[in-house]
Write a protein that binds this DNA or RNA. Structure first.
Length: 283
DNA sequence: ATGTCCGGGCCTCCCGGA
């Protein structure tokens, strides 16, 4: 009570990872969980299992690839938008937006962009430009907003174990980093980097070359906070233990905790009956 | 250049994507 824990987790296949997902929810109890890479069609989303675990959900699936979802503990997220505006021809399931506990939650899965250069990298940059435009309207709204997801961008060389072998990768390209910088310039707070200004912190360790065992990671999953949320950030971190479990995703969940003030608490946790009582008492 | 894992197609292996 008194705070809101918002997490983002690229689960790399919700069917392959359902036991892992449920174990993480049970242990860490995030209030909000943004998921990416469901790799599942809408009809197969495990809504019953998640309900049994105490979570409501909205989701946008897709066959084989992509797919995003927002989970909320003890409530159903109120879907605000699915799909990133700006390109009606874009059919990839990479963006969903919902209101949870008085916070507007944007769950995103930015295109990987490899191989680079090429059409996939062009799509990544175009998608990023659309995100920058949409994010500016969200930020300007003044509402509490979090942009959470797999951004597929290593913001700086301090966000990777060693950039040398990744120099040609789409995740480290100057154009990708420039987009991320432009996004932050709107005023967003990078929760993990702000919480740990001088520490190497990773959210992704690929399956190759024993990178997990050697802690050769990348920081590509981000939680960007609007001004009012950033002012109330209490803590942030990465649930690294998840990456060490058997049959783990190549990502670990990243999270932020927001202190909920009395006003937000009253607005978000209150029931219709309680609101009626408060009105009746003249409060 | 390499490495590993997921889902899907179609059939116990190969492929694209990451």
């Amino acid at each position: 009570m008194g705070h809101l824990k918002i997490a983002t987790f690229n689960i790399n296949g919700i069917h392959a990872r359902l036991p892992s997902l449920l174990a993480w929810l049970e242990r860490e109890q995030p209030d909000v969980a943004c998921l990416q890479e469901l790799k599942a069609v809408d009809e197969s989303f495990p809504v019953a299992e998640l309900h049994a675990a105490g979570y409501g959900a909205v989701w946008q699936g897709q066959k084989s690839w992509n797919g995003v979802a927002i989970l909320a503990k003890g409530s159903d997220p109120v879907e605000v938008r699915r799909g990133l505006p700006g390109d009606a021809a874009d059919t990839q399931s990479r963006y969903i937006e919902a209101a949870v506990a008085g916070v507007l939650v944007a769950c995103l899965y930015l295109p990987n962009g490899n191989p680079q250069p090429g059409p996939k990298f062009e799509y990544k940059l175009a998608w990023f430009e659309r995100l920058i435009r949409h994010a500016s309207t969200l930020y300007a709204s003044g509402h509490p907003v979090v942009l959470a997801g797999d951004f597929n961008v290593v913001p700086t060389d301090d966000d990777i174990y060693n950039p040398r072998s990744w120099l040609k990768d789409a995740l480290l390209q100057p154009a990708s980093r420039e987009c991320y910088r432009q996004l932050l310039e709107q005023g967003w707070t990078d929760a993990l980097r702000t919480r740990y200004p001088d520490t190497r912190i990773y959210t992704f360790w690929d399956y190759f070359r024993q990178h997990w065992q050697k802690d050769s990671g990348l920081r590509i999953d981000h939680l960007l906070l609007s001004r009012s949320l950033a002012q109330h950030m209490r803590d942030a971190g990465v649930d690294k233990w998840v990456r060490g479990e058997p049959h783990a995703s190549d990502h670990a969940p990243a999270w932020v905790e927001i202190e909920m003030g009395a006003e937000a608490e009253a607005r978000t946790k209150t029931t219709p009956a309680a609101r009626a009582r408060r009105r009746a008492s003249g409060a």
